[in-house]
């Protein structure tokens, strides 16, 4: 049986991992390659590295890091942050990334999804969506949650699916950093409406939250950062717990 995946996410700035709470207040948390290898040895199923560097030099550092991860880590990994055109995708894949995640660039230029799927295959293309639930429903945001758009989460996710996205990585801005659980209702609706896997992101605080994302939200994978980085939840114990809760995970 296909396992539900646990994915630690590493935000990387100038070659170092950081994690924001509600997208601000960054804290240092170590060397991304070392951390990635440690997670792999603990039983993480995949890794996501997000480049949150703005400068040109930082980007170069990130590409070097991707090459090091590819050489040293033996599980699949996704890279994202600052990917805005096909050339960026090509650069990341040839540095050794298995998948790329695109966010704002896909909303600005949805055709990018088609291009990635056509040139490299759907399995390479993860479309990340940051959305907030407000009086108008679930609204998609750009630039790490700073700029609201006209787009509705479900409409956009369906469009991305149709254009050839391989997975949807959905971060609820209402839940991110709050540690009170994932947005299970919205996740379940995405699982129902899409024909591709959904990765739950934003809100993990305890092991029960992961169970609920799978059992109630029907997510295919769950992503988290700080609960793993600061050792609040260990991946081996999380997987033992999920197995005991009848969620199929890789042990």
């Amino acid at each position: 049986m296909l396992a539900k995946r646990i994915i630690p996410c590493l935000d990387v700035k100038d070659g170092q991992t950081v994690k924001g709470t509600n997208f601000v207040n960054l804290r240092q948390a170590g060397d991304p390659v070392e951390l990635g290898r440690a997670y792999s040895e603990q039983g993480a199923d995949e890794l996501v590295f997000l480049d949150i560097t703005a400068s040109h030099e930082g980007r170069k550092t990130f590409t070097d890091m991707v090459q090091r991860v590819a050489a040293e880590v033996s599980i699949p990994f996704t890279v994202g942050g600052g990917i805005s055109e096909l050339r960026d995708v090509e650069k990341m894949l040839s540095a050794g990334a298995d998948k790329v995640s695109i966010n704002s660039a896909a909303i600005r230029n949805p055709h990018l999804i088609d291009e990635i799927a056509y040139n490299f295959g759907s399995q390479v293309c993860v479309v990340a969506i940051d959305a907030r639930l407000d009086e108008n429903g679930w609204t998609c945001y750009l630039n790490g949650g700073r700029i609201p758009t006209e787009r509705n989460l479900f409409d956009w996710a369906k469009e991305a699916n149709q254009r050839g996205a391989g997975e949807i990585l959905f971060t609820s801005m209402n839940h991110d950093g709050v540690k009170a659980g994932f947005a299970n209702e919205a996740l379940a609706r995405l699982a129902e409406e899409l024909s591709i896997p959904v990765i739950a992101s934003g809100g993990a605080g305890c092991m029960e939250h992961f169970r609920d994302a799978f059992a109630i939200g029907h997510a295919d994978a769950a992503l988290a950062a700080s609960v793993f980085h600061f050792g609040e939840i260990g991946i081996p114990e999380l997987k033992e717990y999920l197995r005991a809760e009848k969620i199929n995970v890789r042990l």
Partner: peptide, 12 residues
């Protein structure tokens, strides 16, 4: 509906 293609991830 749950049979997504590609088959992607860890299986036994």
């Amino acid at each position: 509906h749950e049979d997504k293609v590609p088959h992607m991830g860890w299986n036994q």
